[in-house]
């Protein structure tokens, strides 16, 4: 995770005047701005695993901000979306938040409010990315277990004693103890409680 990527803002607005102005303004807040002239163009340019957040106008020809939000959710992209609306009425806000929008800002845009919203969105995105990375690392550790070790781990986490596991698997108690030690080492779990937590995280 570079510092650059953490401050990346995808700006989507069809009005070139507004797009240029918002990009210039966001630059003074030390955000990295990628401007797009339409939701469709943004989606085309969107790479898998893209980071940052999206700032989009609600009212655009073709796909509007609300539809863009829905399309991103459909594609499983975790980018938080901030909507900019010229008609900031209650129904519009409710619809935007229900569709999963992170925030919405009324025109003419107050840059303090927009910057704060972007920072919140980026923090959430970062958190989500961090959690995703941690889960991935854990999965890799689990993948290193042999079939027997994985079997033993499952039974240990379910609360069985070594003697019970040995009886169930038709192994000697010593062999079970060996597998158990291997599991603790490969999963990097300092205690039984830690192992149980890891198993729960894996199951999510």
């Amino acid at each position: 995770m570079t510092r650059m990527a953490r401050r990346l803002v995808h700006l989507v607005d069809d009005d070139p005047g507004v797009r240029t102005a918002l990009a210039s303004m966001l630059a003074t807040w030390d955000f990295d701005v990628a401007a797009h002239e339409s939701a469709e163009a943004f989606l085309d340019a969107l790479a898998a695993g893209a980071s940052g957040c999206v700032v989009a106008d609600v009212r655009m020809p073709g796909m509007g901000g609300l539809e863009l939000q829905r399309e991103l959710a459909r594609r499983g992209a975790t980018l938080p979306v901030i909507l900019i609306t010229g008609h900031g009425d209650v129904p519009m806000a409710v619809a935007a938040i229900k569709a999963g929008a992170q925030d919405f800002i009324e025109k003419p845009v107050d840059d303090d409010a927009l910057a704060a919203a972007i920072r919140r969105a980026l923090a959430i995105a970062e958190e989500a990315e961090g959690a995703k990375a941690a889960r991935e690392a854990l999965r890799q550790r689990h993948a290193r277990l042999t079939a027997r070790e994985a079997q033993v781990m499952g039974l240990v986490v379910a609360g069985h004693s070594n003697a019970s596991i040995a009886a169930q698997l038709g192994l000697s108690q010593r062999t079970v103890e060996h597998y158990r030690a291997q599991v603790m080492m490969k999963m990097e779990a300092p205690s039984l409680a830690a192992l149980v937590k890891l198993a729960a995280a894996l199951g999510e």
Partner: peptide, 10 residues
Amino acid sequence: TQPLTAVRAH
């Protein structure tokens, strides 16, 4: 609202 938004941002 469009030009107004742009003017304020600039």
